[in-house]
Write a protein that binds this DNA or RNA. Structure first.
Length: 276
DNA sequence: ACTATTTCCTGGATGC
DNA sequence: TGCATCCAGGAAATAG
């Protein structure tokens, strides 16, 4: 499932391969569409637009278009949800099941959005004049937040730290995998109330979270479920998960059996001995 | 203002 | 082999 490192992997692939390209035409699938904007609005905004650059904000992919309206510049926003994929393919490639959008590019390639489970979302929006970059997304970027900001963000939250990490209004981009993995490395139990962690513990958590996100980006993300980059290649950070998806298996540090519990409807994996 | 729960969706795994 | 059931989870909607 695409979280910050997986989305970053896709964004880097897009930035490298479609920056400066022009969207010549767009095909959008029928029926219940995974769209936040109406299909005709998306087609209108995309067709003929030059992709100036591609950026990430949390789990959102932002394709900045050269198209200007009275209100500002147009952006194409893609959220991959659980199973969404953006692929760059040669023209005329087989159309995979659950393909919802095909953008034909001037370079001859096609950019396709595929999403079996339809949790992904497509939208176009206009950047308001004077708007700070990506502020509409809300939350702090985990790789940019300072230790002081991180402490301030969680100090008053009564919710379990695991839930707080997943709250995109606080931090943007952390999902179930990296929440569990960072808590393991920081030695903190997922049920631990955020407010009862000391500033030192929170700072350590931030440090481990940043380290793990950077390592995962370097590994091209975690390919559990069906994540692939724009070229269809898998990442390999899943081989370095220490708790996520390892219920019942021995802890890599102490050999205790990894436990799983459900917090706010999400599974949380942890080592009962290494995490307090 | 917060926090917790429910809902959306399909493929893969499981059980009989 | 086939069919029913359960499970995965990001984020919006709803409830408390």
């Amino acid at each position: 499932m695409p979280e910050l490192p997986e989305v970053e992997t896709v964004v880097r692939g897009l930035a490298q391969r479609v920056s400066g390209d022009v969207i010549e035409s767009v095909w959008i699938g029928r029926k219940p569409e995974p769209l936040k904007s109406p299909a005709h609005e998306i087609a209108l905004a995309l067709e003929g637009a030059n992709i100036e650059r591609v950026e990430r904000a949390g789990k959102h992919i932002i394709l900045q278009l050269n198209r200007r309206t009275v209100d500002g510049e147009a952006q194409w926003i893609v959220h991959l949800g659980m199973t969404g994929q953006l692929l760059i393919v040669p023209p005329g490639s087989n159309i995979a099941k659950h393909t919802h959008l095909i953008a034909r590019l001037r370079s001859g390639r096609e950019l396709r959005f595929i999403d079996p489970r339809r949790f992904g979302r497509l939208a176009v929006r206009t950047v308001r004049a004077g708007e700070k970059a990506h502020e509409w997304v809300g939350g702090h970027e985990p790789l940019e937040i300072t230790p002081e900001q991180f402490v301030a963000l969680f100090r008053k939250r009564k919710t379990p730290i695991k839930s707080a990490l997943l709250n995109q209004k606080l931090l943007r981009g952390v999902g179930n995998i990296y929440a569990d993995e960072s808590l393991f490395r920081a030695g903190i139990r997922p049920r631990h109330r955020a407010a009862s962690l000391t500033p030192a513990e929170l700072k350590a958590l931030r440090r481990h979270l940043q380290t793990i996100l950077k390592q995962a980006i370097a590994a091209g993300g975690s390919s559990i479920s069906d994540f692939v980059d724009v070229g269809g290649e898998s990442g390999y950070f899943q081989f370095r998960h220490r708790v996520y998806g390892r219920e019942g298996e021995p802890c890599v540090k102490c050999k205790s059996r990894i436990k799983r519990l459900v917090i706010a409807g999400r599974s949380a994996h942890y080592c009962p001995k290494c995490q307090k």
